[in-house]
């Protein structure tokens, strides 16, 4: 056993090294084409992400929702479901939270925040459940169902912001009215991330690990993901587990939406999900569906996202460069995995 695992480790490290080289080469090429100095750009991204406590905390504020979405996706990927609807599930979580926060007559901020937390889970889960039901009852592939529901969620949030929940007097792309201060999740002075958010992120990460690795649910999802036909001989219902996994994923995404509202933007904005759902899909693929790599890769992606913000100011480059680098990472990984599989087959 140890022999094979050390062999696997060697293979993995070669893969990572190869991937690193590919990513760097690819990125450097793109930067050169864009006419940007390669090392200066990378250095600025690094400084932009880690140069001060404020910046580090800002990276963490991206890390939390990204990790939450990735955790949710680990469940659906286990069951071999492509939950591309995760983006819409974040949005619906945010809407659920906002709906609860707007309930009139509740004075206690702790109570109403707790309500918002649960409402966000319900919002995200429900959106996941819809995609799941479309698949299991309607035969709609979860990619198409999820994608469709993303559009519906996006339309819904726009309607709320410009319609019933608009600011008194004006409706604007900048979102709904700011929440009263007491409903903001508390953030230490000079920090950009709330302690509550960090606690939730780490807790969900641990809970996900427990459920996937230590509970029967994780094992059953693995079984269904590998062979749904055989699962029936073990009296494990694929339909029930598809729905369970996508509900859990929706719940995790919903919490991300809750934090975006209560800890980051303190209001509802059209782009409340910040694309973290899609980014998390890439992240989980990059991690090879392994939870152990998720927090680190989430940190890497978060750092890229935050670090690239200052590129336009310092180097007159577009901050979209971070997206290009992230894309390169994923493509290189998929490329390496693809080559491995092809070699295995032949």
């Amino acid at each position: 056993m140890s022999k094979t695992s050390s062999k696997q480790m060697k293979k993995l490290s070669i893969d990572i090294l190869l991937g690193g080289v590919l990513v760097f080469g690819f990125t450097a090429l793109v930067l050169l084409i864009a006419g940007a100095p390669v090392f200066a750009t990378l250095k600025n991204i690094w400084l932009g992400a880690f140069a001060s406590t404020t910046k580090i905390s800002q990276v963490l504020s991206v890390w939390v929702p990204l990790t939450l979405c990735a955790c949710g996706l680990l469940f659906t990927f286990r069951a071999n479901l492509w939950n591309i609807g995760i983006e819409g599930q974040v949005i619906m979580g945010a809407i659920g939270a906002m709906a609860a926060l707007r309930i009139p007559g509740i004075e206690n901020p702790v109570l109403i925040t707790a309500l918002a937390f649960f409402a966000s889970i319900i919002g995200g889960s429900l959106w996941g459940l819809f995609a799941g039901l479309l698949k299991t009852k309607g035969g709609v592939h979860e990619i198409f169902g999820g994608l469709g529901l993303n559009f519906v969620a996006q339309g819904f949030i726009l309607w709320l912001i410009f319609g019933p929940w608009k600011r008194p007097g004006i409706a604007s792309m900048s979102g709904t009215e700011l929440l009263p201060r007491e409903l903001w999740l508390s953030t230490p002075p000079g920090w950009r991330v709330s302690i509550g958010g960090l606690v939730i992120g780490v807790s969900v990460l641990i809970l996900t690990w427990l459920l996937l690795e230590k509970s029967m649910l994780g094992l059953k999802l693995t079984a269904i993901g590998q062979n749904p036909r055989a699962a029936r001989l073990y009296d494990i219902s694929p339909v029930a587990h598809y729905l369970q996994s996508i509900i859990i994923a929706g719940g995790c995404a919903g919490i991300a939406g809750f934090l975006q509202v209560t800890a980051v933007y303190h209001r509802l904005i059209p782009s409340i999900s910040s694309g973290y759902g899609y980014l998390a899909l890439l992240l989980v693929m990059l991690a090879g569906y392994r939870i152990s790599l998720v927090p680190f890769l989430a940190l890497f992606f978060a750092a890229l996202n935050v670090g690239a913000i200052q590129l336009p100011i310092v180097l007159q480059l577009d901050s979209a460069l971070s997206g290009v680098i992230q894309g390169c990472c994923v493509l290189s990984t998929l490329f390496i995995i693809g080559i491995r599989q092809k070699r295995k087959q032949s």
């Binding site: 509970s215 029967m216 059953k220 079984a223 590998q226 055989a230 073990y234």
Partner: peptide, 21 residues
């Protein structure tokens, strides 16, 4: 299940399944 261990197959087959493995 191709990539599932033998002992996990027995866990999956067990009639009264508990929450934890």
């Amino acid at each position: 299940f191709t990539d599932v261990s033998l002992s996990d197959h027995f866990s999956l087959k067990k009639k009264q399944s508990s929450f934890w493995r």
